[in-house]
Design a protein around this nucleic acid. Sequence first.
DNA 1: CCTCCCCCTGTACCACGAGTACAGTTGACC
DNA 2: GGTCAACTGTACTCGTGGTACAGGGGGAGG
Lengths: 205, 205
Amino acid sequence: MEQKVDTRGRILDIAEAAVLDKGFEATSIEEIVAGAEISRGGFFYHFKDKNALARAMLERYIETEDVLYDDLFARARELNDDPLHCMLIGLKLLAEMLEEMPQGHPGCVIASTAYQDRLFDEGVRELNRQAILGWRKRFRGMFEEIAAKYEPREPVNMDALGDMVSGVVEGGLVLQRALREHNNASEQIMLFRTYLKLLFAPKPN
Amino acid sequence: MEQKVDTRGRILDIAEAAVLDKGFEATSIEEIVAGAEISRGGFFYHFKDKNALARAMLERYIETEDVLYDDLFARARELNDDPLHCMLIGLKLLAEMLEEMPQGHPGCVIASTAYQDRLFDEGVRELNRQAILGWRKRFRGMFEEIAAKYEPREPVNMDALGDMVSGVVEGGLVLQRALREHNNASEQIMLFRTYLKLLFAPKPN
DNA sequence: CCTCCCCCTGTACCACGAGTACAGTTGACC
DNA sequence: GGTCAACTGTACTCGTGGTACAGGGGGAGG
């Protein structure tokens, strides 16, 4: 139904690139319409305001991110059926993926919007929240599966451990952005990976 | 020399609170001058533009943050002279401090500016960068001291491990902000703490 | 007491970006 | 030929950042 031109999609593409590069507020509607080669009226036909654009961007971003994780850990599972090794392989793949991105990962829209959240309405903030809760659930499930097989060497809160995946990635991306280096996020993920190796290492006795 | 009224300081106080609450761009000069009870002209007398305000805020913020860390780990060192235990106590104190803040830690100015960095000039970005490099140096030093006494169970890059402190805190604050929970950052710090315990645990043999 | 200078106040003004409000055009499909 | 979705184009309002002063008030030094 939208294989004609898909102006809406083109707007989202341009906007996402610009927002990841400069932040939401610094991205003007003017430059979006210039990039998408439409008129200002055309933009407001698709999105009633910048909030609507933000919501649509977040929805799309979260969906592709979810697909990416599904994919990544499915591939990892094919390589090794053990839950711990699957996790370790998945994180390695994630780290490699982040490293392969030429000028570094563009940065996470979630963190970006989290720190400007007063610009947005409740709908956007709630979307943001649900995305992180979704990741928490996903990773907590995987960690519980691991813990059932390998008893953790130290007691850990599984929700918090699930959050730590998101936190380490987000934190790494903040560092990367601020330092203008390009592999901080992948390094942080690899450190987190060694954490998991130590945490779920079989007891020696 | 500035015990009279210290308008400049009052501007910074108001601005910092507002920026941590809503982000830099969402904070208008109008509301700052209203809060500080000065005129717009007065504001521009102290800061030639918003960039100058950002730079001053960052400088002040970084300085107080550094003092805070100095303090925290000095207290930890008093409690236990061993480098590993000093680190573990310091992180515990940090986690407790974050938890005690009534509606959660306001969020880190560093991450906030990192995600809107195109709004700022090179001076601000460089300040931001130097702050994180400073923390890297601080924590790397501490970890090297620990590693000299307790051989790490897995090989780790000391720069990356130093960055991980900042990363975990920043990431935790992002989660906290987006989830609107209040103890994510301290939980993440505590998880990082168990990482260190496992990483530097004496070998059993 | 006068003067200078710092620290402002107050006003007027410009540029630019978000958002509103339409009126009109174009092309596809029934 | 008519309808409708998907636009274009223009014109306007409003908030905010930023400039450019002109002037005031009060404390310190001569």
